[in-house]
Structure formats: C-alpha cells, structure tokens
Design a protein around this nucleic acid. Sequence first.
DNA 1: CTATAACCGAGACGGTACGTCAGGTCTTCGC
DNA 2: GCGAAGACCTGACGTACCGTCTCGGTTATAG
Lengths: 196, 196, 196, 196
Amino acid sequence: MTESKKRGPRRSSESEQAILAATLQLLKEKPLRDVSIEAIASKAGVGKMTIYKWWPSRAYVALDALSKSLTKKIPIPDTGDTKKDLEELFGSAMAFFSSKKGLIFGRFLAEAQSDPKFAVSFRERLLNPRREAARQVLHRAMERGEIERTLEIESVLDLIFGAMIFRLMAGHGTLNKTEAMSMVSILMEGIASKKI
Amino acid sequence: MTESKKRGPRRSSESEQAILAATLQLLKEKPLRDVSIEAIASKAGVGKMTIYKWWPSRAYVALDALSKSLTKKIPIPDTGDTKKDLEELFGSAMAFFSSKKGLIFGRFLAEAQSDPKFAVSFRERLLNPRREAARQVLHRAMERGEIERTLEIESVLDLIFGAMIFRLMAGHGTLNKTEAMSMVSILMEGIASKKI
Amino acid sequence: MTESKKRGPRRSSESEQAILAATLQLLKEKPLRDVSIEAIASKAGVGKMTIYKWWPSRAYVALDALSKSLTKKIPIPDTGDTKKDLEELFGSAMAFFSSKKGLIFGRFLAEAQSDPKFAVSFRERLLNPRREAARQVLHRAMERGEIERTLEIESVLDLIFGAMIFRLMAGHGTLNKTEAMSMVSILMEGIASKKI
Amino acid sequence: MTESKKRGPRRSSESEQAILAATLQLLKEKPLRDVSIEAIASKAGVGKMTIYKWWPSRAYVALDALSKSLTKKIPIPDTGDTKKDLEELFGSAMAFFSSKKGLIFGRFLAEAQSDPKFAVSFRERLLNPRREAARQVLHRAMERGEIERTLEIESVLDLIFGAMIFRLMAGHGTLNKTEAMSMVSILMEGIASKKI
DNA sequence: CTATAACCGAGACGGTACGTCAGGTCTTCGC
DNA sequence: GCGAAGACCTGACGTACCGTCTCGGTTATAG
C-alpha cells in the first residue's frame, strides 16, 4: 500500500472555486500587482490562510484562475495547406492575445520577470500548450515537405509568438487579424525580393 | 553663455547622480519591483522627497538610470548587403538583450504592463531608438530593391525584436548569436520550401 | 425513566489526563496567556475539539490542571495557641505562593481580571479552600477568646492573604517565612505602640 | 555639548494625545487584553506604526494613558494623629481602587503577570507613588513614637495595600470606606484580645 | 452479536489581530 | 531657501490562534 488516505476534512472545493472566480474577476479589473491576497479573500468570502495554504503566492492563484478558465482545447488546424494552417493558428492566437485574457497573459509574463519559479509554471501552464499546437502544425508541414527540413522550429515559433506578445506588451502596434496574416506571409515567403 | 544663474542651490546634480547610480546598482541586484524608493534614497544618501520631487515613481528613476547608462549610439550598419546588415544589427541587439542591462530592459517592459504612462516613456526612451536603427536598415534595403516593396516594415520589426524579447522574458530558449543568425535567415528567405 | 444511559464510548479519561498533564507542564513554562489551545492539543496528542467539548476555554482547562494537581488537603493547625496556629497556617501559605504553583495561582488571578465567570470558578476551586482553613483557625481562636469577638474575620483574612498575594503579583518584595512571621506579629499585636 | 539635535519632524503630540485618549477610553470599556493596537489606532485616527514607534507594546501605551490621567498628586495626610492619617490615606486609596481607574489598575497588575518588564514600569509609575505616600505617613508616626520602632514598614504597607488590591482582583468582597476603616483598626490594635 | 451512536484524532475553515514593510505626503531644521 | 532626515497615515504583507466544523476510524453499549 503506497497511499494512505488521511482523515479529517478535505480541501473545500467551494472555497477553491470562490477564490479562483474572485481572482479572475479582479484580474480583469486591474494588474496582477494590484490584486492583493486580502482583496481576493474578502471578495471570495474566505480567510487569507485558506489561500496561503493552497497556493504559494498570489501569482499562482492568478495562474490557476486564468488557466482553469481556459478550458477549450487549442485547436490544431489541419487543412493540408501549411499557409492556411498557419493563418488559422495565428489568427486564433491573435484573437486570444487581443482579448481580456490575453492582456492578463501579458501581465503574467511580466510577473515572471521577478519570480523565476513562477516563470516555470507560467511556461508549463499557459505557454507550452499553445506552442505545442503550433509545433505540431509545423511538424506536419515539414513531413509533407512544404517547409524546409533544416528549419529551427523553435526559432520559427518564437518569431511568430514573439511578435504578437511583443505587440501586446509594448503596446506600440495593433493586434488584429490583418497583422497576423501579414506576419504569416512574411514568415512563409521571407522578405528578400524574388528576382526574376 | 546665455543662461543667468539664479540664486540658491539648483537641482543638485550630485544628488541626481547618486540617485541614478544607486538605482542602477540596485536594479542589477534585484527586480525593479523589489527596488524600493526607500532603498534608493538610503543607498544614495538622499531624502525620499528629493526623489519624489524629480521623478513621478521609482519606475521613472529606473528608466532614467538605465537610459543614461546607455550612452553609446546604436550603430546603423551599412555594408551594402541587406542580410549582412541585418545580421550585424540583430547580433548586436541579441548581445544587448542577453546582457545584464537587457535583463533590466525586460523588467521595464514588465513594469509597463501595470503602468500605461510608464509604457509610453519606456517606448520613447528605450524601445524606439533601437527600432529606428532597424527601420533605417530596412528602408535602405527596400530602396536598393533587396527586399519586397510591399512589406509592412513594422511587422518585420516586431517579428525580429519580438522573438528576442520574448525569449528574454519567457526564458524558454537561449539568447545568443546563433539564434540571431538563424532568425535572420528565416526572415530573409521564409520557411516555405523552394521547389526546383 | 429518569436517566437513560447513552450508547457509545464515554469520556476518555486517558485523553483527559493527557490534556491536564500537558496543560500543567505548559503552565510551568509560560504564562497562561501564552498557552494556546492548539499547543495543549498538540502536546497532549489530542484534537482541539476534545478540549472544547469538555472545557469552555483554556482558562478552565488550566484551572482543572492546577487544582487536580493540588491533592493534598490544606492542614488546619490546632495547637491551642492562636499565634502558633497562624504562624503555621501562613507559613505554609507562603510556601505555596512562593512555589511554581503559587506563580500559576497568581496568573490565574490575573486571568480572572478579564473573565468574570472564570473569577467565580477560581474563587471556588483555589481561593476558598485555603481561605476556609484560615477562617476555621480564626473561629476557634475567637471561641477560645484569644482574639476580639468583634473582629471582621473576612477583613482579617484579606489582610493576611492579600499581603502575600500582592507581593507575589507585584513582585516588589520577597516571599519567605520571615515575612510571614513578621506579618502575623503585626496582625496579632497591631502597630500602635504600647504605652506603659 | 553631548546631544545633537536631529533634523526632521518631531514626535507629533497631537497623535500622542489622541492615542492616549483613545486608549484610556477603550480601557474603561474592556479589559486591557481585549484592547487591540488596531482598535486604538483606528479610534485615534492614527497608523499602527506610529504606536509601535513610540511604545513597545499595548501594555505600555495603556500604562502611559492611565498614569498621565492621574495628574493629581496623592495627598499625604498629616493630622498629627496616626490613626486618623491612616484612615484618611486608606480611605482615599479605597476610593481609587473602587473606581473605574482602580479597576484598570488591577488589570495592569494582571498584565504584569505575563510581562516582567512591564511589571517594573507598573511598579515605578503606578504603585510606588501611592506606596511612598503611605511610607511617609508611617515614618512620621514612627518618629512621633505612635507606632512601634521595630516595625517592618514594608510589611505594613503590603498588609494594607494588599488587602485592598486583593479584594479588587479576587472580587470576593466589597471595596468601601467601612472596610478601609475596619482594616485600619485591625492594623492599629491587632487582633489579639486585650486582657484587662 | 451486531449495529449504532458518541467519542476521538486530525485538521480545514472564516476570522481577528499581530508586528512589519513600504508607499507617498508633509514638516522641521541644518547648511 | 534647498534638501536631508524622518514622522505621519495608509494598506498589504504573511503568521498565529481562535472557536467551529467535518471527516473517517474506533469503541462500547443497546437491542
């Protein structure tokens, strides 16, 4: 026997839900930095200790709140045509990043700058799933011979996600479908002029 | 000399220097978020009021401290060959982003997520100069006909800077010259396989 | 049917003993105020509920712990000579008050200042027994005609016990047999000088 | 010159007054134990830090609050007749102990049971002044030859103060002038019956 | 001899207050 | 008369216990 069930009360999922809901709502109102544990506890009708018991810091509560609200699986387009696949993929990514939750995503990446452990969780929970979807699309394209076999796929991923997230965070440009399409084109054909 | 000196002490440039130096040093030790005004004041041997008098918040002190330490003009390569220009440009950008000061740059972008006014200053002081250099390189290339005339230059800029900054902030990949070269290649030629 | 025996296990005297023992030991280490229910429960290897089930607050647990540890009956001296009786009585009282348990006694009287109900229990359980012994000695002395028949016995009791407990609590003087003897003398003969 | 005046703002006596007034009022409403720093700060319209800056714990704030409210000097009766002096002295002591502030006095003595440093301050600030008055009365009586020259004055002081404070704290008897007179009589003449 | 209910340990829960830190404002006084 | 020093109010931090409650296991009596 490896696992002995403990006696006593279990984690209250009512409280957990209330905490995550309160947190998500607060995150939509103001930056993570300004969302205090006390505010979450108070809004959720919960003691602070209950939060500290289950999460190491407010950043993790926030991460849980956001990632549990992103239940929909990220679709992996498979039209047979790489450019179309990429357009679909990055179109939906752009939709996400330009939404309220995309904004929160950016703030999480900001939080990760001063908390390396959080950065790890952030990558695992929010970043990698979306990245993995794109990775599969590129793999399939490579297998079909539609993209160069020598490509550094990770660099490609960074080019495309990086551009969107950079716009999201630096706020110097718009985030819309047109931009996504423009980026996919550049990525596919390159910028060098085709002579002849 | 056209400026008549007023009586009484002016803004003490001694204090200013001490404040900026103290701030820069603290920024190298820990994230902006953890650098308190009190710590800066104490380290600089200065009253808190002196800081509040000249800067609206610690983020701006930090911005000043970093940008005044970046005195070297960003070089605009002009070899005549676009790919070489880009390689040089993004090689040096990569060197910056992977340095201590690059790390601080990332943290400033993080700070901008919860302070829109700061985001504006950040873009003006740190982001645009580097971006402008790249913009000129691309313009020249376009004029020479080495890159397509229909390109959205802003998108190109975001693709390349975004990728590096994204790596810097998300920490999922390395930041080195090889990566920069790889990205320039992808950008130039695109990922689509060249048939025939 | 007046009394129906309930099913199920009875009060566990093992737990009770463990609780009282743990409490007494903790009381010897630190003031009642700093002895938490959680500490008692943990030290006794018992759930908090078991304590709350049988005692209304930690003060009562403590009262039980101390009073059950004072099993020896307070002896009522009867030498035939009032002064000797009083010396013996207050000598032993002084011994008690200057002991570890006397210290705890003082802390209970302190606790009584902010809990009137506890004050009642404290008087009944700890104060009155000792007082009653003294009362009997004084009664016998009065019957023998060795002390004035008009005396307010309660005032006499307070004079003598009050002096000792006051020293115990205020800590401005020593608590020893010499003091007790000195007090008995003053009490017996008064302080007024005897002319002629 | 040994003391260099510091720059910067001085202690705000407005805040200090507000804190002491709030504390005294709260002390009249509930036991010291139940008067929280937060309640004092809130009632005084003051930050908690201001309290922590100037007093080591709430007990000292309370001590300050009470002792600064006891401005009247304790009168030292001098009628020429020792018994009358004592009656006056202990009459007024009884009046104090049976007042609201006397109740607070008792609670301070309770607090002293779990804080030895506070006990010292308590003795110096509240206990000794009153004790000193009584000591002088007894000294004069001794010089006049009205009381025995061999008396342990400290013991006499404890007998009389102890009795009153004990009644105050244990709550088993009343605190009024009659009791005070009764105690003075016992103290003066002793309890032993005067044969012929 | 079983089944049922009170008891128990463990400990999660909503709270209150703790003592600390830093924020941003305001005041005093030395140079 | 500037500016260092620092007191002030505010608000959040993370912790300790409070007293209540809920589990699952154990035990002793009632049926």
